[in-house]
Write a protein that binds this DNA or RNA. Structure first.
Lengths: 335, 335
DNA sequence: TAATATTAGGTAAACGGTTACCTTTTTTTA
DNA sequence: TAAAAAAAGGTAACCGTTTACCTAATATTA
């Protein structure tokens, strides 16, 4: 493959001149020379070697996106937005799928440091509370190696991050159900700390305000449809089953609807259901699903902005906060 | 950041020795020396610089996945499989989202060459027939720069590729509907050449065998739910509306169901619907959708295998062929 | 015990760019 | 018209590895 040396030789100039022309740097070059260099580059089918460039400049113009799942629309939609923003700034992205595995996450971090990415946007996995430590390790490890970091989905000190006020989202969902007259409200959470834990807290706090104990109607699923399905069966076959269920994500809420249908419980007549996140699924299922929606576009844009800010040299961490919005569809009814 | 020079200096050996220890190459090293080097590496928090390594070795251990959409489950599921396969082999992947834009696709190809990826798995976008040329240009451009290429979704000469026999998939769908007694079968395709065009051909051929002209019941959508919805409205409001509709992908089929519901047409009683691909959506919608399913896992595995084969030096192109499978759910009924 | 192999390590070129610092020529300015 | 400035280009060190080729010491073999 042709290099700038080949071009330099062909044209009869030094590589410095070739490099300057190719990169359009601010250094005077005679028009004719420039022309000849560009023509030679064309003829030799020259392609700049980004690897060599990165080595020389110490910047790769690459950032990584570390997300728990690439088959989950919540993350891919955010990713798509982030990608187009960073593309505009001339960055390429590694999309890394951690599959909710702490171990894979750490391996990726190690790898990204070795690859000298300029920045990372990171939605840490936190299946068990103690995972928080591994998350933190990963983040400090990145920072220690001069890699810009932006997180979303969990909260960390001294890190630029997107914070979604999911606590109030959960409160809103519960209040809505209370207003509809529900008193027995089930809650399917996800065995995870961080975001979903705050949702649970919002749920409990709001119930307590209304003088209701919710603890025993909490159950943990695996964040997939199957999990929602199984949890719903357990909840609905209790002696005193809930009249409404909140699931901590979209897929599990769909699982709840499926389970209810199977055992002949009508939604929304006999059971109200609320999910988190939003997707085509929630709109398409019957009845369509009332959800606590997170502002995907805003999250994506903000994450990209925070990262770019750091890549441009800003060192102080910034937190951007968003609120959720309750999107009312057909899956809830007054009792 | 620490380099092998720092380690070499600290231990009092040459960088060659350090490099050998770090990479565990087949070269004898005294146990004690090895120990001291590893300790020094640890203490200095050494991270190998993949960039420098790539430059020296001429291989990046990176492959790119070029797909039309990262929010479409069909592609992300395949991607996930490919990713885990390649991960096992020590490759990292760039997931590139072409958004069905030929222009973006070409930009990516340019960029991937500059980044010297070792290989590319590519599902080319072909919105108009003439895009075929751009697709081919991209593929030859990659090959010309010694980058291994595997394609899926379109057919090219002399390229390792996954071929899904979608023609027979369409035939099967039509035959199924014919057997159910349908004679007026609408077809919503996607303005695209390649795969979807072969589906159309399968549709037409099979109808012709049965002595039916299908041309006028063909209509083109945008591959999104909205497109399916609009096309369905057009088809269903004809004088002589179809009693069955095949949509060339999943999302448009969902759009058809939505449209039918809105104008009071019952599925499957008044209208049978078949989609292509498969996803949770098809299972969750009511009635659940009968689809022509593509073997995602097999496609992903085969794509990875074909690429690895090339990365290991095999130069001859290999084509792997898969058949679709008709998954019968509730959206069709005999007339 | 001399010849040969093996072990252990070092030297330096190469990978393909960038860029600080020079030099020479031409143009501008006072 | 001499001095200063701008234009045009070159030289070579540097980025952090790998690796072919060497050397020296030690172990093995006949």
């Amino acid at each position: 493959m042709a290099t700038i040396y080949d071009i330099a030789e062909k044209v009869g100039v030094s590589v410095a001149t070739v490099s300057r022309v190719i990169n359009g740097v601010n250094h005077p070059i005679k028009g004719e020379t420039r022309q000849r260099i560009l023509e030679a580059a064309q003829e030799l089918n020259y392609r700049p070697n980004t690897i060599a460039k990165s080595l020389a400049q110490g910047r790769t113009h690459t950032v990584a996106l570390l997300i728990p799942s690439i088959t989950n629309n919540f993350y891919t939609q955010i990713s798509e937005i982030i990608e187009s923003k960073l593309d505009e700034e001339g960055y390429n992205i590694y999309l890394c799928n951690t599959k909710r595995s702490i171990e894979k996450e750490s391996r990726y971090v190690e790898n990204l440091i070795a690859r000298r990415v300029d920045g990372v946007i990171f939605s840490p996995t936190r299946v068990r509370p103690e995972d928080n430590e591994a998350n933190l390790d990963n983040i400090t490890e990145l920072s220690r190696n001069n890699i810009a970091v932006v997180t979303f989905g969990s909260r960390f000190p001294n890190v630029s991050q997107i914070y979604i006020n999911t606590y109030y989202g959960a409160c809103e969902a519960v209040r809505y159900l209370l207003k509809l007259g529900h008193r027995q409200i089930g809650f399917i959470d996800g065995l995870t700390a961080g975001t979903r834990r705050r949702r649970r807290k919002g749920y409990l706090d709001t119930l307590k305000e209304a003088g209701i104990e919710g603890e025993e109607l909490i159950i943990s699923g695996d964040l997939e449809m199957e999990g929602g399905y199984r949890c719903a069966l357990q909840l609905l076959q209790r002696n005193n089953p809930p009249t409404a269920v909140i699931a901590v994500n979209n897929l599990m809420a769909i699982g709840v609807i499926k389970a209810a249908k199977e055992i002949g419980i009508k939604i929304p007549e006999d059971l109200s259901v609320i999910g988190f996140d939003d997707s085509l699924l929630s709109q398409v299922i019957e009845p369509s699903l009332t959800v606590v929606k997170q502002p995907l576009v805003e999250i994506g844009n903000a994450a990209a902005r925070l990262l770019i800010r750091q890549l441009h040299g800003e060192t102080e961490a910034e937190t951007v906060e968003f609120n959720t919005r309750l999107v009312i569809r057909e899956s809830c009814r007054a009792r």
